[in-house]
Amino acid sequence: MISARKLSLVRGEKIVLENFSIDIQLGQITAILGPNGCGKSTLLAALSGDLQPATGDISLDDRPINEYSIAQLARIRAVSSQSQRFSLAFTVEQILEMSLLRSGNEESTSNAIQALNIAHLLGRKVTTLSGGEQQRVGIAMAIAQATPYLFLDEPFAAQDLESITRIQKFLRELAVQGVGVVVVAHAQEDSLDWCDVKVRLPIR
């Protein structure tokens, strides 16, 4: 379990979240909701070990998350960030290969390719893809790592309805298999019925 207690998170000069606590359970899909600027992505960065909280503690299986090395964390959680950009003209296949540095295998990659419907893009240069296609590649990279926790920052932002439905179905399957999924979403609470836990961040 990832457990955050009495967190205060700061971005630049601004306090984006104060005295906030949350638990992320394996086998559940947790949605983090809220309007722009309320600190959803900042919270995701903290929970995934990318950002040190100003105050408060985050632990992963009862051990402070900042005690894990970069390699250890990569075997435990995968992250698909909203700001993923591809600068070099690697093929999608090469990009997916790279994501398997610490965890994941051929089977998990093949599942990710199917779930994200990117089989026809494997030979394409990633720099020539549309924004939505690049986002699907970014999500596939995270899923291919087959880690116990999966963090997705606004995974549906640039997707059509068909892709959204397919990805949601796959994330549900992962949760059934025991993966703890955290999704940052803009959506209204009633459109997130496929999630187990909905956490709405306070507006500051």
Partner: peptide, 17 residues
């Protein structure tokens, strides 16, 4: 450096310092 081309934060997520 192949992995680093994906950006520092993605490199860390994949497990490279």
């Amino acid at each position: 450096l192949d992995v680093l081309s994906l950006g520092d934060s993605t490199a860390r997520h994949i497990g490279m310092d």
